[in-house]
Each structure stands twice: as C-alpha cells, then as structure tokens.
Design a protein around this nucleic acid. Sequence first.
DNA 1: AAAGGCATGTGACGTGGTCACATAGTGGGT
DNA 2: ACCCACTATGTGACCACGTCACATGCCTTT
Lengths: 219, 219
Amino acid sequence: MSWTEHTHEIANLDAPARALLDTLAPMDVPEGAVLFCPGEAVMGYVVMLSGQVDVNLIGPNGRDILLYRVAPGQSCIQSTLGLLGGDDYTAEAMAETPARLVLIPRDVFFALLDSSPGFRRLVFGAFAERMQSMMQLIENVSFMSVEARLAALILDRCGPDGCLHMTQAEMATAIGTAREVISRRLDKMAHAGSVAHERGVVTILDRKALNAIVSGTAF
Amino acid sequence: MSWTEHTHEIANLDAPARALLDTLAPMDVPEGAVLFCPGEAVMGYVVMLSGQVDVNLIGPNGRDILLYRVAPGQSCIQSTLGLLGGDDYTAEAMAETPARLVLIPRDVFFALLDSSPGFRRLVFGAFAERMQSMMQLIENVSFMSVEARLAALILDRCGPDGCLHMTQAEMATAIGTAREVISRRLDKMAHAGSVAHERGVVTILDRKALNAIVSGTAF
DNA sequence: AAAGGCATGTGACGTGGTCACATAGTGGGT
DNA sequence: ACCCACTATGTGACCACGTCACATGCCTTT
C-alpha cells in the first residue's frame, strides 16, 4: 500500500524519494501514548499521517507547558534534533488522539536529505515553522497576560458552536500557567459576561469582548 | 583574500563550496548596529566571522529578552527563517561589539544547499542548535526563579577575575525580567555575602552559594 | 560649579504561582 | 439506590515578580 500519495506534503516529492518512503511502514499509536520522553533516544524523523500529537515541556515541579501541536502532514522535529545538535531534549510528545505516523530512521533520513531537493525543502520548512512558533511562544509567555492568553486559547480552540471542551487543567498547561489561575480568570470572565463555564466546557458569550482582551496585551 | 580558511566551521567544507563562498565579501558593522529589526526583509544566511551579536525579542512595553547570542563561526538563523517559513519575525539583532560577517544571498544559499552536503550539515546543525537553546530559554523562563537565572548569568558571564561588567538594565534583558527586580535580588545576594556590587560591576564572593541558587530551581 | 544623563535604590500596588484545603459532580460497583 | 473513589473545580493565604512613580547618587560635559 502506498501512503505517500495520500499525504499532502509528501505527495509532491520526486518519485525516487517517494519510492524510498513507501518501503517504510506507518505505525499506529493509541491515544495517550507517549512517543518520546526526556532521556530517550528515538533518533529519527517523524511524519504524522493522522491524529494529533502535542509536545510539552515538563517542569521540575510537575507543571508543563505546550510547546506546539503536531498536525497531520507535519513533523515532530523534536526527535530529529538528536540527529543533529547532539544535546538532550527535555520535551515529551503525547498522542492526544489515536494517531498514525511514519518514523524515518536515521540512515534513510540522511539519504533523502542528500538525494532529494524536495525532501530538503520539506524538512527545512518544518524546522523554520517550528522555530517561528517557538518564538511566538516565548513572546506570548513573556509579554502577554494570562487573561489575554486564555482568551486567545478559547477563541482559537472552540468549536463552531462556540463551545470549548477542555478541563481547566488542560487549559492551564496549554497556556503555561497553573490551574487555579484559570479558575479565577474564568470566574472573572463569566462575571463580565464574556463566557459561561461548567465542568469541562466553556461557552463563548461575547466574542468581541474576548478579542478585546487578546489585543489589549497590557492595558 | 580568502576568509573561508580562517573560519573553523567553514574551513572543513568541500572545495567548490568554499570557492563559491570566497566570492562573497565580508562586511564590517560597528558596535551597536542593528543587523535587522521587525518588519525588515533581509533574506539571507548570515555567518559571523568575528565579534558578538545578540538577538533580542522586543515586547510591546519596551521590555526585551535575549533570545540567543551569535558567536563567531555561528549563524544568525533569524534572517534565514524568512527564506523558508514565510511568516514575519519579531526579533532584533544588534552588534554588541564591532563585528565582521558574511551575508550569503538567497540564490547562493539555495545553490549551496543543493550542491554541498557539508554546507547542509552546517545549516542543519545551526538550526538544531538554536532550536535547543530556544527550548532551554522557554524552560528557564517558565520554570526557573529570577534569582536562579540571575545567579546563572553571573557565573556564566563573569571574567576570570570573578567580576561581571554589566549594568542592571543589561542583566535584566539578559534574563528577561525588569531592572528593579535585579536591583532587589542583587541587594539580597550581597546581604547574604554571595556577591558584592557597585555601579556597573558585580563581583563574585561565594561561588558555591551561587551554584546552590542555580540548582535550587524551586526550593 | 552647574547641568544633564545614566545607573541605581525604594515603596506601593496589582498580577500570577503555590500550597493546602474544601466542594462538587461522575461513573462504577454492590 | 447507595457508597466510593476519582476527577474537576472553588477558595483563601502567601510569596515572588512586574510595573509605576519617584528619589538619589555618580559621572561626564560645558
């Protein structure tokens, strides 16, 4: 079976590269599986085919913060860093939904890098993209208030019905703060009429108000 | 004149790549020069030959935080991101000392990427390295106390005489906090006998104490 | 010596993170 | 229906940190 033709970014690669990739078998991982964790040596390039994987940085006191999410077609470059930079990484990748992915082993990865300009572009793009989002994260964490980040999260992740199904603990790690803070902020927003919230669900009542909170970084 | 043979990382490249690079003229920038700033389109790969360039993220309220420092032989990949990812970057690069560097224009960059495995390795290495240090930064900012970061800074940047020549404002941006906080923390450390400080200089008195502060992330 | 500009010290105040709890829904089992 | 663990959430106290508004002080220029 050929999976490469169904994967947007990969389907545009040159034929030899795709042929090589098609010799690799996709693997399925169940929801909640940890793809890699600190200290482990995965050493490969991972391409997501379907599902959703989140990469978190884990703090010493148990708190963790979402570095980025890996969507289908994207790569989890975390494991690739070990191939190049050398140092150990501290992040943990966990499947948020059942996921299917392909692991390109070290040799194949380097072979493709040398032989396929398209693959090079793909990899560089992935790197640049992650880099950008990491910078964005640093910017958000150091310059945006918790309230602004929370409002952005709600707007960003809510369904078309204006409902967000997440626990406060999940929201906390998503924006890098503590659960208690989320509780208080949600109360405040609810009191202001911007949202309503019950166990596991937040409902948007006033999109404009939330947008105002997001823009108003510090005033 | 051939500059490539004097530049460690580059000297190991294959001959054709070095020949191509030698057609590029190094440029000198004075101390304090801004290499690029938000919104500008530099679009190239920059290799430092000598000097010291700092890349800062600038917040809306004027506060800024040091993303990373570019040492000789390294690349400032910030400007390269535009070549690949697409989005705009928000960082600013400034020469902390008089610096000499080479800007590899877009076409030459891609030509080298396609023709020289060594150059590819170089670029990937630079990316991976930066990626690592960005993750490190996120980890430090979100999980380490200001005091720990300050102690680490002092130990890291002090001269062999145990003296650090920086203003409090500089230390503040280096570890991503406000100047007033530095003032208070230095006072506290001085009171504890770990350091002494006067206008523009911090002197280490007790290395062990500082190391203890660094390790004791949160206790 | 006077003046202006840096570097630094300080108090007040609001936000955010941590700890130690108290409550309250929820899903199994019996 | 009831109990029980488990998870999600609410709350108060407290400390670390960021911000604002200043007050000094020190150093260079004129």
